[in-house]
Amino acid sequence: MSDITNHTDDAHAHDAHGEHAKYPFLAHHFETPYQQFDSCKLGMWLFLATEVLFFGALFVMYAIMRFKDPEVFSYASQYLDTIMGGINTCVLILSSLTMAIGVRAAQTNKRGLLITCMALTLAGALGFLVIKYFEYEHKLHANLKWGPGFYVPASEEAKVAVEVAHMTNPVLELVSANPSEGASKVALVALPPADKSSIRAPKAGPNGVASPAELEAAASTHEAGHVDTAHLLDPKLPPNTHRFFAIYYIMTGLHGIHVVIGVGLLTWLLIASIRGRFTSEFYTPVDLVGLYWHIVDLVWIFLFPLFYLIH
């Protein structure tokens, strides 16, 4: 018996053709539905492994930043809304539950239940995003930003002054954009004495205590370019607090992107289940999106205590 190709009159080939006729969803390169299901599932798990590494690297970043400056984290965490975060956690857990029930519904041919579950899960995903939007919006409004923007921008005249000075000395930009006091000192040491006169104190401070309105009022009462808002600073504000928010935005933002992708996938599942595409024989997409949705939940389970629940 040669196993050189191009011979179809073989018992094995008949078997394979039979399986393909019986299961129209079976792709040509798989022999049985079991093989196809197993392959898809393993593929999804490997993809989830890459997600674990993807977020894992960020958790390493988080751990190191927190290890370096624990006071930044315990200080800044108070500005995150524990109630909103807690509600979001519950929303995600409940949507995970409906997803899991949805998988069971698909497995047991309960189309109505499947449609309900997909709709509920989708609602959970959208609800999560809405709450997240309000959280972000609130923080951005309060100028709790990721970088130098964490500080209230200087007045227009002051900006011009800095730009003029920047043209003559490129180091200056780093100084003026630099929230860390220690760094400013180093830069001042390094500058030639002639340039030191052109450096002014940072134009405004973080609004850890002061509201933007207060800062604005302070700025308007002072002479432009010589605003001293030092009295508005929270004396307990640790340097580089913006970094907490940078990591917060990056990690929850990446998680948010995954939720948005989840919304797309769930919408697709909802439409497909209304059209009755899934049966107890073929429900692989529901199962795989379910796995994806659970890992999104799983990541949030770690994000929530690490950002919102720092004592």
């Binding site: 993807f54 690297a57 340097p239 940078a246 990056i250």
Partner: peptide, 28 residues
Amino acid sequence: PVLGITVALLVIERAFNIGIFDPSMGGD
């Protein structure tokens, strides 16, 4: 995936100056 997140952080650092890799802003 770690490379992906590393270059993503680098893009964010360069574009938004968040300072996670910049010692003058407490980064590393």
